[in-house]
Write a protein that binds this DNA or RNA. Structure first.
Lengths: 334, 334
DNA sequence: ATGAAAGCGCTAACAG
DNA sequence: CTGTTAGCGCTTTCAT
């Protein structure tokens, strides 16, 4: 493999000039530029990124940890993050943990070894992660999707508790009293737990009974809804409405409900969370809580990169607005 | 940041021992191991990956280029790739090109600069990419999803032409004669073009008229189906069936069709391609051509890593079986 | 089992 | 505008 040394020798200049040519062509005379360019072509030079990193101790990349690659919310937020990062001259190195706390730790360590300049992550339990991160306190971190009351680390997202409340309230407003929650495992998502807390608060405020049989936790993912829905519906007194932790699960639930011979929303209402693009394409179109995910991704990148320049350690916290989007999957209780 | 030098000094051993401890602990005496371990904790040592790469000229990572992060087929194939890579001690560095040929070039170059050991990619035009890759011929490359008759580069996928044929034939078998194709832009996907070719061949073999008005190309992505479907349906003699390039577009089309007041499959049949998980959850459940995507990802990783060890330059080609999955979105022509 | 020493390919003063 | 030089943190012979 050719190095700048080879190029320099062929072009009959110094390696410093070659380096300048690569990083700031304007700093080298036109004539020299051409000599270098031809030399590069001649020996098939390829830049070695690792050498640069080693030398500068900067990677210009931000590490991103997401819980899964199969839920498109994370695709959307990643786009926002990526767009903003690109704009500012950063790359993003993405890894997914499959909702596995152990994997999260490994991956974060790995990203750190790769010298990412900053970390953006959506993890099972941010507070726990923070502890494990203590020694890496010198790389700016921001939690995405989770908003934490008083975490010592920056975070951006919506108020999930309120989101859960609003979803449930919508159902209650429609006259539903037996409202179930199909929840993604709390241990693998604090967002899910916060949404559940909002659900609980709403039931209480409305004076609705909280039947534990109406709350089922399942792993995240479309394919895990079957059993959850079955457990909910195979009871003497099934719910008339289901609030799902996210749109993926809501869509999964609607699919299962049909297998049970139930129509949404005639027989049972369903509300999701996220408002992924797919939500407005499925039949019936899904009522859901919209998170401004693209924007969230952008903001996360801004915060991460921002923290890099102004090195005051002040964690920032950004709570964006969510919004109930009423579509066709919810209806008044007959 | 602490380095192995710091660790060595504190532990009172040589840096070589520290390095050995990191890479092959069994090569260092128990006693020394412990000294090193405590020294590491004491100074908060963190491994520097870039230095290793620079020194070994190996990253143990395979670069992956995908066209988009929002279509879950690529999420599934990536999982397969990742699982296999992990198994063999490799990481994967994923980038997405948003179906933009220019971005593909940039990203591939970027991956190469990052010294990936091998490349797995799904690009707009593999043959074109190969040309641009000529100088990087020393890193093994494999194309994923595209299967190329006689490319000088390994590839794994299904026979897309036959897939397109089978999808169309299913529709023809149901009595449809005006079969449209909602195709992802050919310039951004050779898979889409190959599927189209299968569609054409089927029409010809069945003696069905090929009406150019029945083929619309749109950008990939759920949100781009509106105009395509409108163009198809706002005609004097609209199709009675639509074959979409992929499930995402098929689902998008079904959504739009409903806006037109049409029922699938009563008024119009729809068949997709890929069999993403979502396909069996939407209503009506989608008839589609299944690709073994997870397996494809695994095989791609195997081929890439395999090529690394046995350095005979022989490109390999692997064509897996696809399968028509008939569900609810297609029906006989009334 | 351990250590000394020579790089890996680039950047960044500094000097000219 | 260009060149010299000393690293960046790790691996890897080659000795011992």
């Amino acid at each position: 493999m050719a190095t700048i040394r080879d190029v320099a020798r062929i072009a009959e200049v110094s390696i410093a000039s070659v380096s300048r040519f690569i990083n700031a062509p304007e700093k080298v005379r036109q004539k020299t530029r051409e000599k270098i360019r031809t030399a590069m072509d001649q020996c098939g030079y390829r830049f070695n990124y690792a050498a640069k990193v080693l030398s500068t101790r900067r990677t210009q990349t931000i590490g991103l940890v997401i819980p899964t690659i199969t839920n498109t919310v994370f695709a959307e937020s990643t786009r926002g993050l990526q767009d903003e990062a690109t704009l500012r001259g950063y790359q993003v190195l993405m890894v997914n943990a499959d909702y596995d706390p152990a994997a999260e730790g490994r991956l974060i360590r790995h990203l750190l070894e790769r010298q990412v300049d900053a970390l953006v992550m959506t993890v099972s339990n941010p507070m726990g992660t923070i502890a494990g991160l203590a020694d890496a306190i010198n790389v700016p971190a921001v939690f995405l999707f989770s908003t934490l009351p008083d975490a010592p680390v920056s975070n951006v997202g919506i108020n999930n508790e309120r989101g859960g409340y609003d979803a449930t309230a919508h159902l209650a407003d429609l006259g539903h009293e037996r409202i179930a929650m199909l929840a993604g495992r709390f241990v693998s998502s604090d967002r899910s737990r916060h949404r559940y807390e909002g659900y609980r608060r709403c039931l209480e405020e409305r004076g609705l009974e909280h039947d534990p049989a109406l709350v089922v936790e399942t792993p995240f993912g479309l394919e895990h809804c079957r059993e959850g829905v079955a457990r909910l519906m195979d009871t003497p007194n099934p719910p008339t409405a289901i609030f799902a932790s996210n749109d993926l699960m809501a869509i999964g639930a609607m699919g299962e409900l049909r297998s049970f011979g139930l129509s949404v929303p005639q027989d049972i209402s369903v509300v999701g969370f996220d408002d992924v693009t797919m939500a407005s394409y499925v039949a019936p179109r899904l009522t859901t809580i919209r998170q401004p995910v693209y924007e969230m991704g952008r903001r996360a990148a801004q915060m991460a990169i921002g923290a890099l320049s102004q090195n005051n350690g002040e964690p920032r916290r950004l709570i964006l607005d969510h919004e109930l989007v009423v579509r066709e999957s919810t209806a008044s209780l007959r």
